[in-house]
Amino acid sequence: MTIEAFIGQALSGISVGMVLFLIAAGLSIIFGTLKVLNLAHGTIYMVGGFLCYILTSKLAHIPGAFWWALLFAPIAVALIGGVIEVLLLRRIYSQEMLYQYILTFALILILGDTCKFFFGVGYQTVSVPWPVNGNIALWGLSFPTYNLFLIGCGIVVFLGLSALMRYTSLGSIVRAVTHNRETANALGINVPRVYTGVFMLGSYLAGLAGTLMPPMSVVALGSDMAVIIECFIIVVIGGLGSLPGAFLGAIILGLLNAFGIYIIPKLALAFPFMLMIVILIIRPWGLLGKPE
C-alpha cells in the first residue's frame, strides 16, 4: 500500500467513524441519563437521512439546499424524538429492561415502515454540496474535501458537547440527573423535562449524522440496522454513557473497518465484534468509562 493510499484509507475510515460518533454519542448520552438502550436510535438516524434527501431534492432550485437541510432536518428529527419520549418512553422507565428493548424495537418497525411509505424502497443519493466537494491537496497528497469536513464536524460536535456538559448550567443539571435522579428531583430539577431534553439532544445528533452521511453513501431502508450495531460496538469500546469514550470508540471502529479488510479479509466483519467481546469480558465499563 502506498503512503497516499494508506492515509486516504485512514481518513475515510475516520470520517465514517466521525459520523458514527455523532450517532453513538446520542445513544450514549441517552443511555447515561435515561438508562434506556434505544434500539431505534439507528432508525432515527435513517429518518434524518431521508429528510436530508427529500429536502435537498425538493429545494434543489435554491442554492445551498444541502445546508438548509443540515439546519432543519436534525431539528425535525429532534422534534420526532421529543414526541416519542413524551408519548411512549416516559411510561416505561420504571419497567424492566426487556420492555424498553421491545418498545424501542417496535419503534424500529414503525419508523422504518413510515419511511418506506413516504420515501419508497429505492436507494437515494445526495450529491456532495459546494463548497466541500472536490479534492483538497495536503502535503502534496489529494483527499476528498468532504471527508475532512466530516472529521471537522465530528471534532466540533465533540468539543461543543463536552463544553456544554462541563461548563454550562444546563450541563450540570443533566449531570446531576444522570448521577442521582432522586436527589436532583428533590433539589427542584424537573427530571421528566430533562429526560425529554436529553432524548431530543440524542435524536438531534442522530439526525445530524443522518443528514451528513448521504453525500458519502446512500440513503436506504435497512441502513438503520447496520448503523445501530456499529454504535453498540462504539459505546461498548469507549464505555456506555461516556462521551470521550464514544469519540475514541468511533475512531477505533473507523480504523478497524478501514484496515481490517487488509489484515485478514475473511475476518474483517468479525473484528469489531471480537473487540466488543474482549472489552465486555475484561473491562465491561469500556476504555474510558468508570466502573459502576
Binding site: M97, V236, L269, M276, I277, L280
Partner: peptide
Amino acid sequence: WFCVRRSAVYFALLTLAFAQIIWTIIFEW
C-alpha cells in the same frame, strides 16, 4: 461461559456480539 460472567445490559450485548460473530462466520466462510 463468557456471557454469564456479566449481567443485565452487558449480558445482552455479549450475546448480541457472539450471535453476530456466528452470523459473520456463516456469511464469510
